[in-house]
Design a protein around this nucleic acid. Sequence first.
DNA 1: TGGGATTTGTTCGTATGTATC
DNA 2: TGATACATACGAACAAATCCC
Lengths: 82, 82
Amino acid sequence: VSLSHDSAVPVYRQLAGLLRKRIATGVLAPGAPLPSESSLMGEYGISRDTVRKAMDVLREEGLAVTVQGKGSYVTTSVDSQG
Amino acid sequence: VSLSHDSAVPVYRQLAGLLRKRIATGVLAPGAPLPSESSLMGEYGISRDTVRKAMDVLREEGLAVTVQGKGSYVTTSVDSQG
DNA sequence: TGGGATTTGTTCGTATGTATC
DNA sequence: TGATACATACGAACAAATCCC
């Protein structure tokens, strides 16, 4: 699995889609920690800025929650307020 | 206070003028921090590029100084070298 | 109590591409 | 052609929260 800079789809959206699929398929279960920013940077050879934009997307979609100093986690029922 | 895209005056110059007035009237005193790029982006619904162009104008006029990782500040006497 | 490592939060610096006027 | 404006992407610095020893 890799990301392309030669795509019409921005890299940060490609990464968001990739993580979204892991969540949808249960590879990342509710409450599970998502990879840290630095690990995603290293794994895909992208900048922190791009990683964070991808996380922004997932948070807006309600799929992830982030805690400063800890990390990001797949949303659980208690994280949802709807 | 808002900015218009339907003006002969570019948005970045409108923003520069708006901040210049705040400085002139003392709303923003010497040494005071100016709003961050992201807050100005959000407040006026404009891009970072446009915000930065406005700050360029203020710096050229000697009204503001900018420090990476910190922010921009209204010029004080010690900031001036003339 | 303290210090270091890890992680996220926020800020500015720079470059490139695209679209519009 | 050039100025304006937005989006994307990578860097760099500083700040704050967490965790562990």
